[in-house]
Amino acid sequence: MNIFRLAGDMTHLLSIIVLLLKIQATKSCAGVSLKTQELYAVVFVTRYLDLFYSFISLYNTVMKIIFLLTAFTIIWYMRKHKVVCQTYDKEQDTFRVLFLIVPCFVLALLVNHEMSVTEVLWTFSIYLEAVAILPQLVLLQRTKNVDNLTGNYIFMLGSYRALYLVNWVYRYFTELGYRQWIVWVSGTVQTCVYLDFFYYYVQAWRNNERMKLPG
């Protein structure tokens, strides 16, 4: 464990807490894409199957359980909570997620470390996470309402993987023979997907104004 990876995990956890607080405090999920939340639930389920058969550390296990529980809590709020589910703009959140899931799964079958069920699913989760934010970014473009908390959520979600990029560079230089091409390439793509959002987020922050996305 190094400081970059710990910072990345804490940023990831914080982003999820911010989203949960937004939904709980405002009793609204306006501007939040349910599809992205469901894709993340799929990412966590397919990535954390090793919870059942391998113990890495208490930290690792606790964080995985927290990520799984919070992901399903958010989905529950957006689907079942009587007040919150009315604020979900279903007709705007129409990204065809199958166009993300199928290619990622096929790619995981073709490019992986080991042709086993858990390894293919783990690889699938790495590829899927790189594109899971797309429905959320598309929704923002459509609804134009980037409320502060949702903007902070997306910013931190993008930042966590950028911190992981630094962690991978650090591990490459400090751990002999450390290689993770699949994760490195996928994590780089994932961070690049956020660059456009980062640009407008930082611009709004510098001009101290509400974030607005171009037409």
């Binding site: 995990d9 890495i56 470390h113 080991e114 993770q180």
Partner: peptide, 10 residues
């Protein structure tokens, strides 16, 4: 190459 038990990251 890293195999499954190497997945020490979240």
């Amino acid at each position: 190459t890293s195999t499954s038990e190497d997945h020490d990251e979240l």
